[in-house]
Amino acid sequence: MDEAGNGGGNGVTKKFMYMNRKAPYGTVYALESLEVVLIAAAFEQDISVVFADDGVYQLMKGQDTEGIGMKNFSPAYAALGDYDINKIYIERESLEERGLSLDDLQALTWEDEDDDWKEKSSLHLVGRDELAALIAEQDIVLSF
């Protein structure tokens, strides 16, 4: 695990996509996916993360889980930039269907080391056709 984490593996980089389609808390999928993504980040692969269908609710601002007695894990998405995960795609149609816009989601950013650590947005709003094309170019798609 460490060898891969230090980039000392055999240098094969694959395109991994994590597809999130469930609302958080009602099922364990969202949390499981987040943990897998954080672990996978150590392997220095080409990672993208998608939020589509009810998955867009995972990034909702202002989640308050006190009343349901579960941990609010939404702050951890803001750490994805630190893990060099900055290709986060939101399907536009899924947002619109739910009466939501990007403003309803938490801002996710990363710092570009090659551009004087400038803070850039990791969130990319993509349409259905664009997302279909992104999926088609992956080596591995993991569905949650």
């Binding site: 609302a23 009602g26 989640q63 889980t65 009343g67 309803d104």
Partner: peptide
Amino acid sequence: LSHDAAARGLA
């Protein structure tokens, strides 16, 4: 159920 709505960011 208000608690479930709040958890999902639905004020």
